[in-house]
Design a protein around this nucleic acid. Structure first.
Length: 865
RNA sequence: GCGGACGUGGCGAAACCGGUAGACGCAGCGGACUUAAAAUCCGCUUCUCGCAAGGGAGUGCGGGUUCGAGUCCCGCCGUCCGCACCA
């Protein structure tokens, strides 16, 4: 009599057994076996997790368990990205201490994640808010500073005057602080910067070698780094330059070949020269102010309008001292890119053209499109930005775009009025935050010694516990005594830095700390970390495609260059997989409020609000989020259906990189599968265990052979699917194998043996996905060790091989029949069989066979007419 | 605007290198078991004409290359993502 698989009993039992056996502890990396470092992006402990979060962890776990079974020494750790704003917001809103709130959440989330049954080495757990962690981060900061990789600089920031804090760009909504609603000001503040640009060239070039990263992510990073080659050109000001300003204006361009098409210079509204002139001329000041008001907020709304003001200056053309051009200030020129000034070449740039047309500035086309007629080619409202042949360009006439660029630069360098330059979009990383819940920056400001690093033996600089969040601003700055210290150099009264580090710093090296998480004297032992790194498989969301991944790439290079790490190419993650999200329908009541899935009843596609009985509106599929209430609680689901069902479902149906839609029906399907595997194992497992030892009579023919073949073919396919991150296909293969086992009826020794073998293989191939069920089945099959630590089986080539093939036969490309022949049969024989095949003969009636194409073991196509 | 990805049954999706389109799952329909239901098991399920045998159409749209195209090429349409006045 079969019983139900009892996940509620089984799952905790195996989790305990795994933990107690120490089966998932990573061994020292110098052991015999090859290493596999598998890592999922560690979470911010925001509280409870829902089924959507489980997909990321499950994918990592499948890889990790598979690698272990394949004989690798696996490192699969988990920890907490524990500093950050939400903890401070909780403190402001509810009066809880950020630390207490964070550790409380960690406790809750850990218990939830543990229930998923992942094979984490929990001994390596870390939290970035732990002084034992940030101590090393502070020491590292000081090393970077000494090496010139960290420095201080005045920088423009978004300042919220009500909350007295700096805001990240994402926290500025429509020009206002997201929390206070106050209009955000631009302020110049002293900020600590990390010199990411020192590695710009390498960060870009090395992307090419990251062939196990998604192309999309590499492209996004390439764009973000934004290398562009061109020239810097100095334009001499006609007459006296305004007082205090240099005599020439520097401009960056990627198209020096179009210099003879220049019609004006345009400066950013906050270019130093614009500011100088604005001090004297009100209309320029007014223009600059109107640009500043637009600022970050509505730039995109106003993007179409090109506006400017004539600054009343003139400059000389570098190639012709007689040629004078006007200088304007323009709203489309960015002070933060290049030199904050451009030369306008309207025929070859749409913005320049719009601007020239708006203000009636004359221009000449200088690039002739291929095949265009030089006498009639003209530009009116559409610029020609492609390559072509230069004309109207004196000594550049007749040159291609590329040759023209080279020739123009050569000339500029000869004249001393410019040179080849490379500019980057990438800028240094500002890491100062006026926040409490972050890693304190370990420096002291002394009135006589300047900025002094906190001596290493005094680290960590701990956050004070007794802080109040009753007032806006940084609690560290107004703490009664925390910041008052004596200078480590001269013992004079001094103050601590009260800024803390951007939390992206915390997550830029945690993967290295995991290799040696208990080390008290160093962030990690150099040899140990160097042996484990790079991470062999990193799994996470695309939302981190640029910042987190780029910062980590910077950090591993910096750590290498200050002598902490041996990592030749500096790359932290050898392979990256970006997984899709779990999405769910959203529901809204007639009254317009969001409804959770359990608050509605779905009948014939119409959602009904249970409480009121009124129809509810079904919204689009969206990422599970608390605010839209379209979440399925993990604990509740695990309690009702089990962790294995969650794991199976989130990997079924959709390819891992694409989103998967959560549905109750789909989850039930996964549940049915689990039950089906169990009932088959329960029914046939014990018998299989008894006969499994010696070759059973009859297992090499008929139905028994077919079942054995199905099992070995499934094994081969699933192995390849896991290696290729095609988990949805592995799931489908597993269904097929279960169907095959269920179909094989009978009790003769051959079938019993084949069934036992198939169940054994099935248990092993599902074990990375359904680890608890697999252990239970493994035990039922009579094995006395964990399936989790049992070596992955190898398919028998004789059973995988197909002996005969079914060939479709086409007549003029249309399928007219099929024949089953021995594999490898000669083309002549196949041809003869095909032409004699009944349906083919009928289809060929009254037609002449002109050609017969035989693709061995694939298809036959007869061309007739 | 620029860059990228994608478009296949009622739905999620398979289809290795150009070679039987729709594996597998969900939903649906029919049947078995049951006093009944649930659960479970078995079968059917791209559309269309046909009682059937069998035929026709079919991978967003329009062309092309090929014996043969979901797959390659050209041009459109649509959806999603990233960047966004980057000189």
């Amino acid at each position: 009599m079969s019983s139900r698989y009892n996940h509620a009993e089984s799952e905790p039992k195996w989790q305990r057994a795994w933990r107690e056996s120490g089966a998932f502890k990573a061994q020292a990396p110098d052991s015999e076996r090859p290493k596999a470092y598998v890592l999922e992006m560690f979470p911010y402990p925001s509280g409870r997790i829902h089924v959507g979060h489980s997909r990321n962890y499950t994918m990592g776990d499948v890889v990790s368990r598979f690698k272990r079974a394949r004989g690798f020494n696996v490192l699969h750790p988990m920890g907490w990205d524990a500093f950050g704003l939400p903890a401070e917001n909780a403190a402001i809103d509810r009066g809880v201490h950020p630390g207490a709130w964070t550790y409380d959440n960690i406790k809750q989330m850990k218990s939830q994640i543990e229930k998923l049954g992942c094979d984490y080495d929990w001994d390596r757990e870390l939290a970035t808010c732990d002084p034992a962690y940030y101590k090393h981060q502070q020491a590292m900061f000081l090393r970077f500073w000494k090496a010139g990789l960290a420095y201080r600089k005045k920088q423009k920031v978004n300042w919220d005057p009500v909350d007295n804090t700096v805001l990240a760009n994402e926290q500025v909504v429509d020009g206002r602080g997201w929390r206070s609603g106050a209009i955000v000001e631009t302020r110049e503040l002293d900020q600590w910067m990390f010199k990411v640009t020192a590695y710009a060239e390498d960060l870009l070039a090395a992307l090419k070698s990251l062939d196990r990263w998604p192309e999309k992510v590499r492209l996004m990073q390439t764009n973000w780094i934004g290398k562009s080659r061109g020239a810097t050109i100095r334009w001499e000001i006609v007459g006296e330059a305004p007082e205090g300003s240099p005599q020439s204006i520097e401009v960056f361009t990627t198209r020096p070949d179009t210099l003879f098409g220049a019609s004006f210079l345009a400066l950013a509204a906050d270019h130093p020269l614009t500011k100088t002139i604005a001090a004297r001329r009100p209309e320029v000041a007014a223009f600059a102010a109107s640009c500043a008001a637009l600022g970050t907020s509505e730039a995109d709304i106003e993007k179409a309008e090109k506006k400017g003001v004539d600054l009343g200056l003139r400059v000389r053309h570098p190639f012709d001292p007689e040629w004078e051009l006007p200088v304007w200030a323009a709203n489309f020129v960015l002070s933060s890119y290049g030199t904050g000034a451009i030369f306008g070449s309207p025929a070859g740039d749409q913005r320049d053209l719009d601007f020239a047309n708006a203000y009636g500035l004359a221009f000449t086309p200088v690039v002739l499109p291929p095949g265009a007629d030089p006498t009639s080619h003209s530009i009116t409202t559409e610029a020609y930005t492609e390559d072509g042949t230069l004309y109207h360009s004196r000594f550049l006439d007749g040159l291609s775009t590329q040759a023209g660029i080279a020739r123009a630069i050569e000339e500029l360098e000869k004249l001393g009025s410019g040179e080849a330059t490379t500019t980057w979009r990438l800028r240094d990383w500002g890491v100062s935050r006026q926040r409490y819940w972050g890693c304190p920056i370990p420096v002291i400001h002394c009135p006589s010694c300047g900025i002094v690093g906190v001596p290493e033996d005094q680290l960590p600089v701990r956050l004070p516990e007794d802080v109040a969040f009753d007032k806006p601003g940084n609690p560290l700055a107004r703490h009664p005594h925390w910041k008052h210290v004596s200078c480590p150099e001269c013992a004079a009264d001094a103050v601590r830095e009260t800024d803390t580090l951007d939390t992206f710093v915390d997550s830029s090296w945690y993967f290295a700390r995991f290799t040696d998480p208990k080390n008290q004297d160093a962030p990690f032992d150099k040899a140990v970390a160097s042996a484990w790194l790079p991470v062999d498989q990193y799994v996470g969301g695309v939302e981190h495609a640029v910042l987190h991944l780029l910062y980590s790439r910077f950090f591993t290079r910096a750590m290498r260059d200050v002598g902490l790490l041996d990592l030749a190419d500096g790359e932290p993650f050898a392979a990256l997989f970006t997984q899709g999200m779990v999405v769910h329908e959203t529901y809204r009541s007639a009254a317009g409020k969001w409804l959770a899935p359990e608050e509605v009843d779905l009948k014939d596609g119409q959602a009904i609000e249970l409480e009121t009985g009124l129809p509810a509106q079904t919204g689009p599929l969206e990422k599970m989020s608390k605010s839209k209430k379209n979440v399925v609680d993990l604990d509740r689901f695990v309690k009702d259906f089990g962790a294995d069902v969650v794991r199976w479902f989130v990997l079924s149906d959709s390819p891992p990189e694409r989103d998967v839609e959560w549905s109750a029906a789909g989850a039930e399907g996964a549940w049915r599968f689990v039950q089906r595997v169990w009932s088959l194992t329960e029914a046939h497992g014990p018998a299989a265990g008894r006969v499994g030892q010696s070759p059973a009579p009859g297992a090499d023919k008929g139905e028994a052979l077919a079942l054995r073949q199905a099992a070995h073919r499934a094994l081969k396919a699933v192995t390849e699917d896991i290696e290729g991150f095609r988990f949805n296909r592995a799931v489908a293969r597993s269904y097929e194998l279960v169907n095959a086992i269920a179909r094989a009826k009978g009790d003769d020794p051959g079938i019993v043996a084949a069934r036992g073998e198939a169940l054994t293989i099935l248990t092993q191939i599902i074990s990375p996905f359904l680890p608890h069920l697999a252990e239970e089945c493994w035990e039922k099959l009579g094995f006395d060790r964990f399936v989790a630590t049992t070596p992955w089986p190898t398919p028998d080539p004789d059973l995988v091989r197909e002996d005969s093939v079914t060939l479709p036969i086409q007549v003029n490309g249309k399928r007219r029949g099929e024949i089953t022949v021995a594999k490898g049969l000669s083309e002549e024989e196949v041809k003869a069989l095909a032409l004699a095949h009944g349906p083919v003969v009928i289809a060929l009636k009254e037609q002449t066979v002109r050609k017969v194409i035989v693709v061995p073991d694939r298809i036959v196509n007869i061309v007739a007419g």
